[in-house]
């Protein structure tokens, strides 16, 4: 049973971690806390729902479940579409809202407030289009696999695997590639990055695409393992920020580790105290880390 808590925590933590990487990336390049990031998660989930539904109508065979999983080929294909659409949405929000505010050289707090406004608008839009009724990618119930005393659905294990691959790929991108170098340089000193030949506006676009793409993946996982609701992003907001700050703002592996810690803490709390305390866990972690080590586990103390 205790191992079960760990598995549940890791699965929840992987989803939080993927979202938190986006938060940490936007923060380190654009220097503001984007409270609309949760909405990218929700929009990613709904984009995938819409595209897979459309594919299912177009070619019903795509909706037949693949092997042990609950979904058919329509979902992985829709996931690619959802990543692209969510990235486009993030670029659109930046072009309409954050970009003009940055150009005016406004204070950080204005960007943060704008992100609150964007979150509200995006969430209401989802509710308007899809109603607030929960939705699911697949109808059927999935039978959990048993490993000794531990149960896990094939979907959950797949999500863990995908999260692991995505994080390794992100780590490689940031540590080893020219884009990653330019991102790290821009994060440390944007003016000097410009002098070194980096096109800052291009880096900003890349960061939105990466952050929104990861958010879409996280959203699809939540949709697959829990359910799809317009408020799913809002519910994840506090865990996202707790994970990003715990991992050290700017550190992608830190954000994932932070996510896993928050996820584990949540699942342990739910088991020991009760499900109604789940939401409080991220808040407690957030306050504790801000008081004890604001630079996070991986961040550099200023």
């Amino acid at each position: 049973m205790s191992l079960q808590v760990v598995i549940d925590g890791l699965v929840a933590g992987a989803m939080i971690g993927l979202g938190a990487i986006g938060v940490t990336l936007t923060y380190s390049i654009l220097r503001f806390a984007n409270f609309a990031h949760g909405e990218f998660i929700a929009w990613g989930a709904y984009f995938a729902l819409a595209v897979s539904g459309f594919l299912g109508v177009l070619a019903p065979s795509l909706a037949t479940p693949i092997g042990p999983f609950s979904f058919g080929w329509s979902l992985p294909i829709a996931a690619l579409g959802a990543i692209a659409l969510t990235a486009a949405l993030a670029l659109l929000v930046d072009a309409l809202l954050f970009g003009p505010l940055r150009a005016k050289g406004g204070a950080i707090i204005i960007l943060v407030m704008a992100s609150f406004g964007a979150a509200l608008t995006l969430r209401n839009l989802l509710e308007f289009i899809f109603t607030s009724r929960p939705a699911y990618y697949a109808e059927g119930l999935q039978i959990a696999l048993r490993f000794g005393g531990v149960r896990a659905t094939p979907d959950a294990l797949l999500c863990l695997g995908v999260a692991a691959i995505v994080v390794v790929a992100m780590r490689f991108l940031i540590a080893k590639t020219a884009i990653g170098r330019a991102m790290r340089a821009t994060s440390e000193n944007p003016q000097l990055a410009g002098l070194a030949g980096v096109d800052i506006r291009k880096i900003v676009r890349i960061v939105w695409i990466l952050g929104a793409g990861l958010a879409a993946i996280a959203g699809i996982m939540v949709g697959l393992l829990v359910q799809i609701r317009p408020t799913m992003g809002l519910d994840l907001l506090l865990p996202l920020f707790a994970a990003a700050i715990l991992g050290g703002i700017g550190s992608a592996p830190g954000a994932l580790l932070g996510g896993l810690i928050v996820g584990l803490a949540e699942s342990i709390t739910v088991r020991l105290i009760g499900a109604e305390w789940r939401a409080a866990v991220a808040f407690v972690i957030l306050v504790a880390i801000l008081l004890l080590r604001p630079s996070g586990l991986f961040g550099r103390p200023e």
Partner: peptide
Amino acid sequence: NVFATLTIEENLRLAAD
């Protein structure tokens, strides 16, 4: 005037990109 968090090599490769 240098990127403190990047290595010497990375500072140069960034500019050479």
